[in-house]
Design a binder for these strands. Structure first.
Length: 838
RNA sequence: GCUCGAGUGGUGGAAUUGGUAGACACGUUGGACUUAAAAUCCAAUGAGCAGUAAUGUUCGUGCGGGUUCAAGUCCCGCCUCGAGUACCA
């Protein structure tokens, strides 16, 4: 598919030069870089517009997923620049992380060396696909200048009470030798990175208090222009529920409520069904298990707790297994405050200590799981909502009037809830309560290649934040990587030993580092002010550029990165670092689909990567970019097998032969008065501009590429028609094509534009369409009989309804269908359609 | 189970408010150019039926109903595939 060695053999009679992607692409990449075409200063007079593609983990040269992502971002950067905006287009590298450390263990190469090498390789790839950035603003997570501010922000949050240390049951990945955040554990209980089965361990860990923002994180989703899918996922993850929390007094041997011990707190979303509570269930990890267990049941309870402790999370969460085996009676009883009845307390593994109060009221009449449990353990079942007459199921969870519920009887669910909560509050049993599924963000990792947590431990003063003037705390370079996978920080004396900032006595340093999602939670703010050495960024710079006008990335970050970055932005604003009014980091989000090969996601770990190099060497960057844009709507996943690189390369050749100065295709061009054919090409040119503008604006890149091709086909027919082209009409048409294609195929368009007109196509203003030229004088009107197309007529574009009707009724087909009779009805939608009903 | 999203020619897809279904591309076929091939250019290409042909005609957007003059598009009920989530009380 590469041009034939003798170059011009392919053109009808040959152009003065041939389309040589290698030569022009390298040259223009150099021009954009040397001239700083896409550098933008913070006092740029143009309207600010911030385009950001998620910064990549530097895993080596770009793969196809990168190409797709950064091509789309680049198209937008170039398009908005031509529209007259001062576009901030930064790039950086998410350069901390486990792969570099694993490589060090395997090959002995230091993660810093490995990472720097990969950053270089990836930077070079990005340049080679023609993506343009303000390279002065590069940010790398592992740079000392970035670590410093990541740690500074940690301390700022520490001061504000948004960071804390706690002993908690955590997710431990044996493969990664570190703990993971809840968000990094997949639904099947495996690590999202290594695929290993995640274990439960109790460890001292650091947390960001993201739950303090649960409600705001939920509410502000309404104010961002994001794909609904992503918003739904976040809402689900935050998991707000409204209900009531109240106490169940512990019962004595006679079943009376004791007043000398704390009632057992339960949380429910269905306080309206409380009269149907016939037992309670608590988590095996609940601190009051011992207290509630009677002596005769203690052996069974202990055995049950031991069996649960030995089970993995997946086993425990599976719905397999009979419920009687998954729960055990404690022998203890509590009192249902609504009925005054004593009810038994069970232990069951499905009650999680980490949600609500770790204890639930069980209402078998309205909850299927409670129903199953009640049947297995012989508990009473009382319906408190009247099911419809035709209901033949077990638990009824639908709407209906309350029954068997004293003062709630007859009320609907919503009213009964409110009344039950009011009753609880009035009698001091409890209150209405909102709960969230979202947990605090576990940020510590037992790894070397990450941002160290700036804390020291002093025997006398305890946990102490590192003074900010000692930042950054960098991971030391003189370390050995052990095949055990244990972080070398834990054995590095030079790193470990520190001085207590409070008493100047000896202290030891925290050896955990931060989750790399911490780094990516504020990098977009650093881009606004990347060299600031007083602050992570100035509020003014953030005010100018943030929120990001268009953020672009993979949907795989829908929960993790995007939730964390939102939290950081809000918290940074609240601690006075970011502008007060900056509540969201990314105003608009576009999530592009991933690339599959052989049915599975293309990824390094699957070993099914297609390297772009061979294509760049052969058909060139513009052809590869076009193929990515054309193959499918950008938000959808795509199979590599469906890419049409050759077709795109062929198309670029067609454009080249048409547009290159001295092209034989334009050789016989006429001058003088334009003909109707010329006027039609002129109108097509204006329609192209209008169409592409609209399609770029709504991310319909695949149809935009089709638009280029369609228009090019039109021009080929035009230049090869008997009359030949009109010189100025053709020039205007080709110029317009080069302008609208410039964001998509930048090298080719830049080269042709320079050859034709001089100057840089990418600094030209975006063309505008003349509205008067968007419609033809005549249009094709469809004539239908009973909704079926029977004829097509050329009519004036401004034909009125009466004329259109008359023309339609005069058609042979219509006359035949009417067979002398009158139409029952005529629907006229001039000038597009007339439908005759007979 | 729940929540989203998607099902259109041989293939990827197009059709923004209901108004010519299949743009554009790939593939295939034919023609031009060539000693030949490649490349290039031009043309045809949803399926069926009738016709030498121009053409005519029927069917056709996962399945079954419905609304409408008119449905890929709206409504109801299903099926299949994909994604997310999963005992969250």
């Amino acid at each position: 598919m590469s041009p034939s060695p003798d170059g011009t053999a392919g053109a009808p009679t040959g152009g003065p030069t041939r389309y040589d992607p290698q030569a022009i692409e390298a040259r223009w990449q150099q021009v954009w870089h040397d001239e700083g075409t896409y550098q933008v200063d913070n006092d740029d007079p143009r309207p600010p517009f911030y385009v950001l593609s998620m910064y990549p983990y530097p895993s080596g040269p770009a793969h196809m997923g990168h190409v797709r992502n950064y091509t789309m971002g680049d198209l937008l950067v170039r398009y908005r620049t031509m529209r007259g905006d001062g576009v901030l287009s930064p790039i950086g590298f998410d350069s901390f992380g486990l792969p570099a450390e694993n490589a060090a263990i395997k090959t002995g190469t230091h993660p810093r060396v490995h990472t720097d090498r990969n950053v270089e390789a990836l930077s070079a790839s990005l340049r080679r696909i023609g993506a343009v950035y303000d390279w002065r603003r590069v940010v790398k997570s592992h740079d000392a200048s970035y670590i410093r501010w990541t740690q500074w922000i940690f301390l700022k949050f520490y001061e504000a009470g948004l960071v804390y240390r706690d002993n908690a049951p955590v997710n431990w990945c044996p493969g990664c030798q570190t703990v993971l955040a809840n968000e990094q554990v997949l639904g099947d209980g495996t690590c999202e990175r290594s695929g290993d089965l995640v274990e439960r361990r109790d460890m001292e860990q650091w947390f960001y208090r993201i739950t303090a923002y649960a409600q705001e994180l939920l509410d502000d989703l309404d104010h961002v222009d994001w794909p609904e899918k992503v918003k739904v996922m976040q809402r689900h993850w935050i998991g707000r529920s409204e209900g009531a929390q109240f106490g169940l007094p512990v019962a004595d041997a006679d079943g009376n409520a004791r007043t000398d011990v704390e009632p057992l707190a339960v949380y429910t979303t269905r306080p309206d069904t409380s009269f149907g509570m016939t037992f309670a269930v608590i988590s095996p990890e609940h601190p009051r298990v011992d207290e509630l267990t009677t002596d005769d049941r203690r052996a069974d309870v202990e055995a049950f707790r031991a069996s649960v402790a030995g089970r993995s999370d997946i086993e425990r969460q599976s719905t397999e297994g009979t419920l009687d085996k998954r729960g055990v009676a404690t022998g203890g009883r509590v009192v249902n405050p609504f009925t005054g009845q004593a009810i038994p307390v069970f232990l069951a593994d499905y009650v999680l200590m980490t949600y609500g109060t770790g204890a639930i009221m069980a209402v078998p009449g309205q909850d299927q799981r409670d129903w199953d449990f009640a049947v297995a353990h012989g508990c009473d079942i009382v319906r408190t909502v009247q099911p419809p007459d035709d209901f033949d199921g077990e638990a009824y969870v639908g709407e209906g009037p309350a029954i068997n519920s004293a003062f709630l009887d007859g009320m609907g669910v919503a009213e009964a809830k409110a009344t039950a909560i009011a009753w609880l509050e009035e009698h001091g049993h409890g209150t209405g309560k909102v709960n969230y599924r979202l947990r605090d963000w576990l940020l510590s990792r037992q790894r070397y290649w990450g941002c160290p947590i700036p804390i020291v431990y002093c025997d006398d003063c305890g946990e102490q934040p590192v003074p900010v003037d000692q930042l950054p705390i960098e991971p030391p370079d003189d370390v050995e990587f052990m095949p055990t996978g244990r972080s070398p920080l834990t054995t590095h004396e030079g790193f470990l030993s520190a001085t207590c900032p409070s008493c100047d006595g000896p202290a030891r340093r925290e050896t955990d580092t931060m989750d790399t999602f911490v780094d990516s939670s504020w990098y977009f703010l650093r881009f606004a002010d990347p060299t600031n050495d007083e602050l992570p960024f100035s509020a003014d710079a953030a005010q100018r550029w943030l929120p990001v006008d268009q953020y672009i990335g993979g949907v795989e970050h829908a929960i993790l990165h995007l939730m964390y970055a939102r939290f950081f932005t809000k918290a940074l604003a609240d601690v006075g670092v970011a502008p007060k009014g900056l509540r969201e980091p990314f105003q608009r989000l576009f999530t592009q689909g991933m690339i599959r090969l052989g049915g599975s996601k293309m990824s390094k770990s699957k070993g099914n990567l297609v390297a772009p190099e061979a294509i760049l060497d052969d058909q060139g960057a513009d052809a590869l970019r076009l193929a990515h844009l054309q193959v499918k709507p950008p938000q959808e996943d795509v199979d590599w097998e469906d890419f049409g690189i050759d077709g795109c390369a062929k198309f670029l050749n067609r454009v080249w032969r048409l547009a290159v100065p001295g092209s034989d295709l334009a050789a016989g061009a006429r001058t003088g008065d334009p003909t109707e054919a010329d006027a039609e090409v002129d109108r097509a040119t204006h329609r192209l501009v209008a169409r592409i503008t609209d399609e770029y604006d709504r991310w319909s890149y695949n149809t935009a590429i089709a638009g280029f091709m369609e228009f090019t086909n039109t021009l080929y027919r035009y230049v090869q028609a008997d009359d030949g082209p009109h010189a100025t009409t053709l020039d205007a048409a080709v110029d317009a094509l080069l302008l609208v294609m410039a964001p998509a195929a930048p090298h080719l368009c830049a080269d042709l534009w320079e050859a034709r007109s001089g100057g840089h196509v990418h600094t030209e203003p975006w063309p505008t369409a003349d509205p008067d030229k968007l419609v033809d004088d005549t249009v094709t009107m469809v004539v239908q009989v009973n909704g079926k197309v029977r004829d097509r007529l050329e009519v004036p574009a401004d034909v009125d309804e009466a004329t259109a009707t008359a023309l339609a009724l005069a058609c042979d087909k219509v006359v035949a269908a009417l067979d002398g009779g009158e139409p029952r009805k005529v629907i006229a939608r001039p000038p597009k359609l007339v439908n005759v009903v007979v």
